Computed example of a mutant assay.
Amino acid sequence: MMIDADTNYFTEVNTRLSGADEHVRKEVMKHVDYLAQKAGTSSAKILSGVPFRAAYQVLSDCRQNVESVFREKMRGPVAISPDSVEKMIELAEKSLEGWCSTEKSMAIVKIINDIKPEICVEIGVYGGRSLIPAAAALRANGKGAIYGIETWRPDVATEHATNETNDEWWKKIDFHSIKSDFYRFVAEHDLASQVRLIEAPASSVSGLFDTIDYLHIDGGHSIYNAAEDVIHYSKKVRKGGAIIMDDANWPSTGPAIAILDSFCDRVQSFNDDKGVIACIIYRKR
């Protein structure tokens, strides 16, 4: 399958090469030259940001090999600029399904930058629009991973009723396509080291975590599911850790929000188009 290459990545490689020693340059260029040959273009054009297409596997292998050279030869985490994180958010908004706004994405990045988490958990990945900003920020920090908990199954999404319109909508979603697009995005943009996927109902895997630094709750919105996720996971969040509660404007998430309000401080919120609070960021007391 031929896909458009991420030209921003290769211009970043070119910048990083300018500060690398000759041995690193030669090792990296071996992989770039091979990619150029397969793509029917030149290494100079690839590194200067000229658009090109190549087979998905060839692009993926090139990126993995290049990053391996930088990690092994330069002995340290690859520096990712703030501009790269913002670019990742822009690409996610264009490529992935979901409802995470740019404003919320930037707030997620700020949280990651401020608390420098090791263990992040997101319940309800869907298309990945809110997970990708967190993963990009973790990569920029040079540490930490985000565990995305998602089944991509309509029977789990509608296990407990919310309302007829919502439940019918979830039953018609092409989860396979959404899941494939997300996995492809993670691979193409070299976020595999930061992203861990757990394909299981959130209620069955909370025991995998002892301590959580950052928790994003956006799973089932029924009264039962929302409260269940808060009860099972928020108690794992360390003191001073961050909790994001999405879709706070749903009547069915009210009990879950009341629980969070009882032991966390609200630090930021986002309104829907009617001016009602739709997302709340908490700091655990």
Rank of each mutant, 00 (worst) to 15 (best):
K239T: 06
S234F: 04
A200K: 13
E168P: 03
D246M: 15
E159W: 08
L197I: 14
D265N: 15
S206V: 08
A248H: 09
R266I: 09
P255N: 11
R266C: 13
D155F: 10
G220Q: 00
A187F: 00
D229Y: 12
D210W: 01
D265L: 12
A248K: 06
K239M: 09
V156A: 04
M245E: 01
D155C: 11
W170R: 14
T162G: 01
Y214F: 14
P255F: 07
F209Q: 08
E199S: 15
I244T: 03
K235M: 13
F182Y: 12
H221P: 05
Y214W: 06
I259F: 13
F185H: 01
W170K: 13
S262Q: 14
S234I: 08
I231V: 12
G254A: 08
E168W: 05
T211R: 12
A192P: 01
G220D: 00
H216I: 11
D247A: 15
E199Y: 02
H176N: 11
R184Y: 06
P201S: 15
A192W: 00
Y214V: 06
Y233P: 03
E168Y: 08
P255E: 02
S180N: 14
N249V: 03
I257Y: 01
Y214D: 07
V186G: 02
D218C: 10
K179M: 10
H176T: 10
A258D: 07
I243E: 01
S222R: 06
P255M: 14
L191S: 01
V205M: 06
M245V: 03
H160L: 09
